[in-house]
Design a protein around this nucleic acid. Structure first.
Length: 207
DNA sequence: GATAAGATCATCT
DNA sequence: GATGATCTTATCA
């Protein structure tokens, strides 16, 4: 059940070596996979945001190249993980050519197999929406140790294409979240999500 | 249903 | 010493 289908392809560095906006849209419907001691965690990417370069005031790299943002200036296909508000991690993938700082933030995934739920529910159980970059990282056990991780290696953390194709009508573009300080850049439609997602877990859900 | 505020720390000034 | 690419809980309507 947790088998990777034979046609699954691990996304390569060349895939990420494109403009952040294109990578962001095409990442919808791909699968983010995390290898941990107890097996694999995988989720279908349903929401992302693009941070498109040094001129983008919402992009961390707009403040220049520092120890923190250095990874954004490196080769594409590398993870950029940082701590936000002292409590949560955010997971990004570096895009564009080396030397051009841009990235895609993964905000939400649908999970079809949840090892944490050891109940008797078989495969028929509905996918669970992991909504929000902080919760996503908590679920996938992503922290600062995965900053600068090379996603093209296909170990520990990577992204797969399982052959799903989306119609452009299924993709909704909206302004990015929490970047009001970025002036006109805050209004750009750089957030993308798949319109048809599973219903959200009730706020009173167990576990 | 909506809105407000607190938690908590790596990074930068 | 200030500041977040957030999430949860509390409170009000």
């Amino acid at each position: 059940m947790s088998k990777v289908s034979p046609e699954a392809r691990i996304l390569t560095r060349a895939y990420f070596n494109r403009p952040a906006l294109r990578v962001a849209r095409s990442l919808l419907g791909k699968y983010l996979v995390r290898g941990i001691d107890t097996g694999l965690l995988a989720g279908r990417i349903v929401e992302v945001e693009a941070y498109v370069g040094p001129q983008d005031l919402a992009c961390h790299a707009s403040k220049g190249r520092t120890k923190r943002t250095d990874v954004l200036f490196g080769p594409p296909g590398v993870a950029y993980v940082y701590l936000i508000y002292g409590m949560y991690y955010c997971f990004n993938v570096v895009t564009d050519r080396a030397g051009y700082p841009a990235a895609v933030l993964v905000r939400a995934i649908e999970v079809y197999e949840n090892p944490a739920q050891t109940g008797s529910k078989p495969a028929e159980s509905q996918p669970v929406l992991i909504d929000g970059p902080g919760r996503l990282c908590r679920f996938l056990q992503i922290d600062l140790s995965l900053n600068r991780w090379d996603l093209s290696v296909g170990q520990t953390l990577w992204i797969e294409d399982r052959g799903e194709r989306l119609r452009s009508a299924e993709i909704v573009a909206t302004p990015r979240i929490g970047v009001d300080y970025a002036g006109e850049w805050a209004t750009k439609l750089y957030r993308f999500r798949i319109q048809r997602t599973v219903s959200r877990r009730s706020s009173r859900s167990p576990q």
